[in-house]
């Protein structure tokens, strides 16, 4: 029963997220709305971590499985990307390198300035 009620709570937030996506004129996926709502509910103490913990850990652990099907779908778009593979790879590698540097260096700079300590 524990798992059923946890799953029920998560499905409730899923439905709320999907509803918000349809009600609000913003191009934000229902999953993001749902995530924000659940986070808010946890912060406000409306939902306790223990009330969703087991099922959420399970769902997060099987999540990578659900990416296989969309990735397999790449063969359907192959004609559009096959002659641009090199620029695509360059773009991905270069931006990953730069994002790594920008985000890391800024945080390190702020940590030093603000004298941020680790817990």
């Amino acid at each position: 029963m524990k798992y059923l009620s946890q799953f029920c709570i998560i499905l409730g937030f899923t439905m709320a997220g999907e509803a918000l996506q349809r009600l609000l004129p913003l191009p934000i996926p229902g999953s993001v709305w749902g995530l924000a709502l659940l986070f808010l509910a946890l912060c406000l103490g409306i939902v306790k971590t223990e009330q969703v913990k087991d099922v959420s850990s399970f769902l997060i652990s099987v999540m990578p499985l659900m990416f296989v099907a969309p990735a397999v779908g790449i063969v359907e778009n192959w004609s559009l990307i096959s002659d641009q593979l090199l620029p695509i790879f360059l773009l991905l590698a270069a931006t990953t390198f730069l994002v790594f540097g920008i985000s890391g260096c800024l945080t390190q700079l702020l940590m030093k300035k603000g004298g941020g300590r680790h817990d």
Partner: peptide, 12 residues
């Protein structure tokens, strides 16, 4: 299940 799983990222 991907949508509920994504929402669960709120917990960690």
């Amino acid at each position: 299940l991907l949508t509920p799983a994504t929402i669960c990222l709120a917990v960690p």
